[in-house]
């Protein structure tokens, strides 16, 4: 019991530090976000692949403790995301864009991970602080359909995205910490490329 209290306190402190300024207080235009992000993450356009490890915490309403999982991921921008959970159980998910159209949840997810400002601008309003090297980008869905599922989302990063927080409409929250390195497409193995860009 004490351990969980301590855990909660540490987490609370962490959150408090990260959200010292409410990122949703300051609206931003898509144009500002686009230019700023291009400056803050100059290699974003060149590096088409993001590869690394993640730690995901799901805070679910009614549950006292978050569901914590860790694993590896590979993102091929505009194509797909391979999400491999290693702990506490092994499972994998592959999100890909189909040529005609894709389920909206997949498309939103890929856009969030890739920080595809153009795609995000269609469905979200932007907020936050993208002036400094450490940036926070808040997103609120513009249409009621998406809002029934996602209340808001938060992206935090420096030269690449480090944290993605998704607030679901039902009160659940998913907080994903990423440790990633950017790579070129030719650094993917054949198997990886085939899986991500079918």
């Amino acid at each position: 019991m004490r351990a969980s209290w301590a855990c909660g306190l540490v987490l609370y402190a962490g959150c408090a530090a990260a959200f010292a300024v409410d990122p949703f207080a300051q609206p931003l235009t898509a144009a500002v976000v686009r230019t700023q992000m291009a400056q803050l993450m100059p290699e974003m356009d060149r590096a088409q692949v993001l590869r690394g490890r993640f730690t995901q915490r799901k805070f679910l309403v009614e549950l006292p403790r978050p569901l914590v999982s860790t694993g590896e991921f590979i993102l091929l921008r505009g194509q797909g995301l391979h999400w491999r959970t290693l702990q506490p159980l092994e499972s994998e998910v592959l999100l890909t864009v189909s040529p005609t159209s894709s389920p909206s949840a997949t498309a939103v997810f890929l856009a969030l991970f890739a920080i595809d400002i153009d795609a995000l601008a269609e469905r979200f309003d932007f907020f936050g602080d993208v002036a400094g090297p450490a940036w926070q980008l808040g997103l609120r869905p513009r249409d009621a359909g998406l809002a029934t599922r996602v209340e808001k989302a938060l992206l935090v990063g420096r030269s690449s995205v480090e944290r993605i927080v998704l607030y679901e409409a039902g009160g659940d929250r998913t907080d994903i910490a990423l440790e990633a390195v950017a790579q070129r497409v030719d650094q993917l193995t054949d198997g990886e490329r085939k899986r991500l860009a079918p």
Binding site: Q56, K58, T85, P88, L89, V93, F109, G171, T174
Partner: peptide, 22 residues
């Protein structure tokens, strides 16, 4: 049950009609 566990610990990308706890 395995599928449910994998979803619970996986990406929240699957369409859900109700929160996981319900």
């Amino acid at each position: 049950a395995d599928r449910a566990l994998a979803q619970a610990y996986g990406l929240p990308a699957q369409p859900r009609a109700l929160p996981l706890t319900q």
